[in-house]
Design a protein around this nucleic acid. Structure first.
Lengths: 233, 233, 233, 233
DNA sequence: CATGAATGAGCTTTCATTCAT
DNA sequence: CATGAATGAAAGCTCATTCAT
């Protein structure tokens, strides 16, 4: 209930928006959203208190309820925000069907780079998964996002198959998940991995080595020029 | 309840008096640790309240401080526990140097299976990473764990190279990370992925497809019989 | 700022709401401060619980943190309050340089009377000394208080010396400490002294006897007409 | 009830006392009493927790209840202990009736010195006065202590009067209180006084100046060779 | 629209004390 | 006698949320 109201209020605000007062109001809303993104990313949902957020936004607790209805509503708005931003960023990926290997490589590097440059995205998704995705399920906009990256992969695979350099029996979904896995896990788990492996993962060198390895892995997997060694299931 | 059970067990085995009390005490400690593992996995560190834990353990808040000093101390003990369990589980992996492909496949299936059967492990590591690994850094036992899996991979790679079926230029570390990435990410992010992809990931079929894909990917990556397609960095 | 707002509201005829709310807020703050003074004086710092205070103030625990940040902050505010009150009370002491004996006597009777009428002052200072003065050290206002009493003593001594009735070699600081000692100790330790001496100290007669003795002692000490008996150090 | 039991247990322990086990038990009791004296002096009654004491005594909470019945019983034992120690120390004061000035001076220096060397005594009495002397009132031994100092003062005054050097109209009780006031207050309130006066009280020089001033003051007050200046009550 | 006071439940932690061997 | 596990109340403090202008 509170969530629905908040969403309505938010979209109303976004639609009207011309007056000076309106602009100030939108600035407040944005400041809260930005602060909330940071705070939730740093402390998680439970650890990120309403007070921390309102203070970081240089606003007041009350404003969070005014604009987002509840803490939950604010968190949903944050999730929507990071998904929308990723969506926008992905739409910058250029598809060159004539050069499938290069384009696929570019997709891999983009995804890895995106996670690396947006650690908040990673942390927030982890937090949302801790809560079994129940916030994003409540979002009215959740369905709006369709990964541009998967679409590009699909086309690149088709193009590569047509050229005889890619296998026919690999789904874009699997390739996307492989790319996301390698990029996401490395970022998400870097702290425990550092402790566990006993060596740093965040040096420029280590990062490059891993990204190159991921590119290699994906390309080998989609390549047509080799049969997979037999294995028993 | 737990105490009564422990008492029964103790009087059946050892007859001495001290053993009984000791056993009861250990039972309490264990019950708290077990409850904490569940609660922290379900609600995260901040969301997992001391009261929830003590109630789940059918004990008292005070006992948590008696045995673990603080909430943080308890969380550290939980992390140590899940690491130790994984360590023990991994030591069951059988190495057959004569059949590197099969052994590597077994490792992949083991790791994927472990994450699948121990979702708490995944959630707890995510929680710890949210906190930048500061709890495991405080653990005195953190250094004790050495992945049996990595050791097996290292030997398998060497054996495969000797046989001429594996590449020489792949490190065990990278292969381990690739296996862990694919297994971990799929579990960790299943809720947001389900919402995002619009299709379930937890059906037996979907799980099998992904695991097979991971096996294929790893084997292709370490295989000697194919050159990686050229790519530009 | 708050004061200015309140004044504006008042001059507008107190019809508007802000002044009322502001006043109510100040009333809450004052009620807490007053209750805290009583409770801390009665139970000490550790014994004076936040709940006791908030209940006595007919407010809520939360409000203490809202207005004073912490229990310690509240205690500091209490100390500042009692010091300020003493400061104000002392400024009522009239200096008559022409009659140094009478003025000094008045100072002594004032100080003794102040301790007697404000047992909370005594208890709170004892509590603060138990904590090695670490709260008052944190106060930003601690330096603001300058004893009017010492200033009066200083002038009275000078005047008495000029008249040839007081000694030249006695410092105002020592005289002040002597006055404070006799007044403070009698109040502060009355309970253990009663048990120890086996006779009551709080009867009007006993109080008068002690105060007269103190006056006599101080006057004899500053008097010029007698040499101190020789003593060996 | 608990208090009475504890006292009984304690005196029983003290009476029997020969066996090895007995000696060990007495050592435990003493260690607890000593630790409690320190802890209560440092943190007050409420701030001094049973756990802090048992840890400082390298014993267990349970032992405190065994030997002293309750926290209150232990505090009473502590008070009895410091009174007894003071009693013992005072009995070392030598009375020389032939030299009343010197003896009185010695008493003053002793009392001031005792407070200075036993700050715990001062703090504990303050704590007990905060509680309105209700613990010492419960003590069965409270009546046993009779100040040797007052007795000495009484005799010294008589002797001085006989010699014509001391006034006839001064009671030993008042002189004792004057001595105690000056010594006690200076120690008890040194922390707030330091903050208030803006100068240190604990340097050797400051201490000596104050003690000399106290000696002078007492001697002038008891001296026969001067009439007190007239004052109005 | 913005502001800040108010509210009561809940948090982690510590308390004095007792039970059981 | 000593040990240490158990207990429940209460401590200081923070929480998300609402009220009142």
């Amino acid at each position: 209930m509170a969530v629905a109201k908040a969403l309505t209020a938010a979209s109303n605000g976004a639609r009207r928006g011309t007056g000076v007062r309106e602009a100030a109001a939108q600035a407040t809303r944005k400041a809260i959203l930005k602060a909330a993104t940071k705070v939730f990313a740093k402390y998680g949902y439970d650890g990120g208190s309403v007070e921390k957020i309102s203070k970081a936004a240089k606003s007041y607790d009350r404003m969070i309820y005014y604009y987002f209805g509840s803490k939950e509503g604010l968190f949903i708005a944050v999730l929507e925000g990071i998904y929308r931003e990723m969506d926008e960023a992905e739409s910058a990926i250029q598809l060159d069907a004539e050069r499938p290997v290069e384009t696929l490589t570019a997709v891999i590097r983009f995804v890895h780079g995106y996670y690396r440059k947006n650690p908040e995205f990673v942390t927030l998704l982890n937090t949302e998964n801790l809560h079994k995705g129940r916030h994003i399920a409540k979002s009215l906009r959740a369905g709006e996002y369709s990964s541009h990256a998967i679409a590009v992969i699909r086309e690149v695979l088709a193009s590569g198959i047509a050229k005889g350099i890619f296998r026919e029996d690999v789904a874009a979904r699997e390739v996307y998940l492989l790319i996301a896995s390698t990029g996401y896990f490395y970022m998400s788990n870097r702290h425990t991995l550092t402790a566990f492996l006993g060596e740093p993962l965040e040096t420029a060198e280590a990062v490059k080595r891993w990204e190159d390895f991921a590119v290699e892995t994906v390309l080998r997997t989609v390549s047509a020029t080799q049969a997979t060694p037999a294995f028993n299931s």
